[in-house]
């Protein structure tokens, strides 16, 4: 069974077609990269997967289940999680608060209105473990907006991981991260658990080629090519529309 699958997905904004008849299959445990020039519709596709937009037509399946009509939060509960290209964090929360929130919600504790946060030991312990894993434990009491960008980026990923997703969508995880903090972020991405299916949007071809086992190329909203790293890197047409432009 495929972890994530789309059938004839179309999204139009007024007269503009951002996603053009995309049928995509991503198998369980894959490291799947989505590449394509700017404006190719990569982020739109992620937004369709996660329910930010409803598609104009077509279907989306998660683990074989049709999730096209589900709202965003219900998709998260079924194991689909994402990071954003531009950090979407709670600026005045501390990393500890953010993790308490993310993990508490996964465990369904978010409706408990009579329990002090501190009394939720199992969530607190997992929050700290996750913060340690993402090298955020030392700054867990700082306000998020005061953290260095690389740390904020790590928190962005940590929040997505806290949902214990089956499928994780990473929208340019290393974008905007200063060189000296970059390795830290990439290390975390590479060390993601193997059973998690990862879909990666990325412009950095070195990262794509070293990380992905399969690549889909998008151009003008449509699926242009798909194959292994080998095949894609040798495909002359891909080079022409994408790599050529970069090189």
């Amino acid at each position: 069974m495929m972890a994530l699958e789309t059938r004839n997905l179309v999204k139009r904004f007024g007269g503009f077609t951002a996603t053009h008849d995309v049928s995509l299959s991503i198998r369980q445990g894959a490291r799947h990269a989505l590449i394509g020039p700017n404006g190719a519709g990569k982020t739109t596709l992620i937004n369709l997967f996660t329910g930010v937009f409803a598609p104009t037509s077509g279907q989306i399946f998660l683990d074989g289940e049709d999730i096209t009509a589900l709202p965003a939060h219900a998709r998260v509960a079924r194991g689909l999680s994402r990071t954003f290209q531009i950090n979407q964090l709670f600026a005045d929360f501390t990393p500890l608060d953010s993790m308490m929130l993310a993990i508490g919600e996964r465990k369904g504790h978010g409706r408990r209105f009579w329990q002090p946060l501190a009394a939720d030991r199992e969530v607190a312990e997992e929050a700290v473990t996750t913060l340690e894993r993402f090298r955020l434990a030392d700054v867990m009491s700082e306000e998020t907006r005061l953290l260095p960008y690389g740390k904020q980026r790590l928190l962005e990923i940590a929040l997505a991981i806290a949902a214990r997703p089956k499928v994780l969508l990473l929208d340019e995880p290393a974008a905007g991260v200063p060189e000296e903090e970059r390795e830290e972020v990439l290390g975390i991405v590479r060390a993601l658990p193997e059973d998690v299916t990862v879909v990666l949007i990325e412009h950095d071809m070195d990262l794509v080629f070293s990380f992905a086992d399969r690549i889909s190329v998008l151009a003008a909203g449509a699926l242009f090519a798909e194959g292994s790293v080998e095949e894609i890197s040798r495909d002359p047409q891909v080079k022409a529309i994408y790599l050529g432009e970069d090189a």
Binding site: H73, W114, L159
Partner: peptide, 30 residues
């Protein structure tokens, strides 16, 4: 008590960033 609970924390999250809150699996309606 309510505002210091996980429920209170989720409310503050919804107010600050509804998109991210939804991506943490929070259904804002209830």
């Amino acid at each position: 008590h309510i505002t210091n609970s996980p429920f209170g924390l989720s409310l503050m999250a919804i107010k600050r960033n509804p998109r991210r809150a939804a991506m943490l699996g929070i259904s804002p309606k209830r």
